[in-house]
Design a binder for these strands. Sequence first.
DNA 1: GGAGATGTTCACAGATCAGTATACCCGCGA
DNA 2: TCGCGGGTATACTGATCTGTGAACATCTCC
Lengths: 202, 202
Amino acid sequence: MRETVQEARPMTPAGRRIVAAAEELFYNRGITAVGVDLIAEHSGVTKRTLYNQFGSKDHLVAVYLAGRDQRWRALVQAAVDAAGTPAEAVVAPFEALRTWSAANTRGCAFINALAELPDAAHPAHRVAADQKLWLLNLFEELAAAADCPRPAALATRLLVLHEGAIATQPLALDTLPEAVELARALVEAGSRVSRGPRDSQA
Amino acid sequence: MRETVQEARPMTPAGRRIVAAAEELFYNRGITAVGVDLIAEHSGVTKRTLYNQFGSKDHLVAVYLAGRDQRWRALVQAAVDAAGTPAEAVVAPFEALRTWSAANTRGCAFINALAELPDAAHPAHRVAADQKLWLLNLFEELAAAADCPRPAALATRLLVLHEGAIATQPLALDTLPEAVELARALVEAGSRVSRGPRDSQA
DNA sequence: GGAGATGTTCACAGATCAGTATACCCGCGA
DNA sequence: TCGCGGGTATACTGATCTGTGAACATCTCC
C-alpha cells in the first residue's frame, strides 16, 4: 500500500542483517557519517550484496526509516489497544514513548534524518514526514473518539509535546514525565469539559 | 567567560565571512555533508586562511554554533526586556521564536548538530547542550519572578513545548501558534492546569 | 541436471574528504 | 625601512566515499 520503499520481496536473510546493522549505525552515528563499507562489515556481508539488495545508500536509508516507522507504529497501536478508556487511549502514544525511549536515547530518528537530508527529493524524506503526519492524525482520531473539544488543535498540541519530549532526550534532562503529565492534563481537562453533546463513533 | 570557543581575538574580516558562509551551509545542508572546500569557496577565501583562522573543521563548527547561540540569546533577551508584565516575560521566548522561525525553517541548529555529532567530546557538543540549559534556566527564573507555582516543573514543560515547536518546523504543519497558545495558558492559568490530582511529587 | 536466485571475492573507478607545504603579496605600524 | 600579520595561490597527501565489473560458489526448485 503505502510501502513504496521496500515493496515486493520480503527481504533475504542478508538483507535483514544489513538493515539491522544500518539501523544501529545510522541512528547512533549519523547517516552521512556512516559509510556503506562499515555497514557491510558490521552485517558480515559484502558491499556487493548490499548494492544487489538495495541499489543505493539512499534507498537503504529509506528502508531503514520505513522499518523503524513500522516498529514504532506497532508499539503505539499496541499501547492504544491496551488503553482502558478512550481518554487513556489518547495519551497511549506517550506511554509507548516511555518504553521506546529506554532503548533510544539519541532523539527522534526521523527528525535527525530530516536534519541530515535536506533534499526533499530524497526517498527518506517522505518516510520521515509521513511518520509525523500519521501520529498527528492518530492523535486527532483518538481525541475525537474521546469526545475532546477541538480535536485537531488538541492533536497539534499533543504532537508538539511528543516531539519536544523526544527532541530534548539527548540532553538527559528527563523531560518525558513532565510532558506525559501535561498531555494527560490536557486530555482529561478536555474530555471532562465535553460530556454529552458529542457521540457518534466508539 | 563561558566563551571557550572563540576566545581572544575579535575575528578578522575573512574570519567573519567564513563563519557566515559556514552558518548558511551547515544549517541548510548539514554539517557532515558540507566540506571545508565549499565553505572556503562560498566565503571567497582560501582553504589555508580557513585553517589559519580556525585550525580545524570541528572548531569552526563550534564557533558557528556559538555565534548562532549568541544571536539567539540576544533576541530572546530583547523579547523578555520588552515584555510588559512578568507573566508576559515568561512566554517572551516564544515570541522570539516566532521571529526567529521566519528565517530558519530547518529546525533547531543545535538539535540538528547533536544528531550529526554523537561524540560528546566534540567541541560543538557543549555549545549545543548549554544553549538548551540556558533556556531552561531562563524559563525557571522568569516563572519564579512571575510567581508561578512549581517554576522548575513549569520551565521543563515550557522547554518541551519550545523544542517541540522547533522540531516540527521542517514538517510545515504550522504548530507554533498552538504551542504559543498552550504556553500562554500554562503561565496564565498554570496553577489550574498543572496542579492536577497527581502532582504529589516535586 | 540444469536454471535462477543468493551471495562471495577482489579489484577498481572517480570523486571528495580533512588537512598540510611552500612560496608569495601587501598594508601598516615602529 | 623593516618586519609581521593577514591573506592568496597552488599543489599535494593519504584516506575515505559511493558505486561498478567480472568471475565464481552454493542452494533450491523444477
